[in-house]
């Protein structure tokens, strides 16, 4: 588990920031992006995948969350 921050990019997408690893990358896809469920598996542009517990509603961004590493390229 690691602390991460998700924020909106200037282009309108989402970016994922993991300070411990100096990892800042765009989120390519997010598992749940509905009005009543938000989160799940996050796929990053570098090929890595992280999991955050789904929230009940889309949060106000940026937001700090705990994430689990599912699969990372390094």
């Amino acid at each position: 588990m690691a602390n991460i921050m998700i924020r909106k990019t200037a282009e309108g997408g989402l970016s994922f920031y993991l300070p411990k690893r100096d990892l800042e990358d765009n989120i390519v896809s997010i598992e749940f992006d509905q009005t009543n469920k938000w989160g799940g598996e996050l796929r990053l542009a570098n090929g890595g995948t992280y999991y955050v517990d789904p929230l009940d509603a889309p949060p106000r961004l940026p937001i700090s969350l705990r994430a689990k590493r599912v699969d990372a390229p390094e």
Binding site: M5, R7, Y17, P19, R60, P62, I63, S64
Partner: peptide
């Protein structure tokens, strides 16, 4: 950048 990111999250 740490404090800027924090202010973005907490105070928008």
């Amino acid at each position: 950048n740490y404090i800027s990111r924090h202010m973005e999250e907490k105070y928008g």
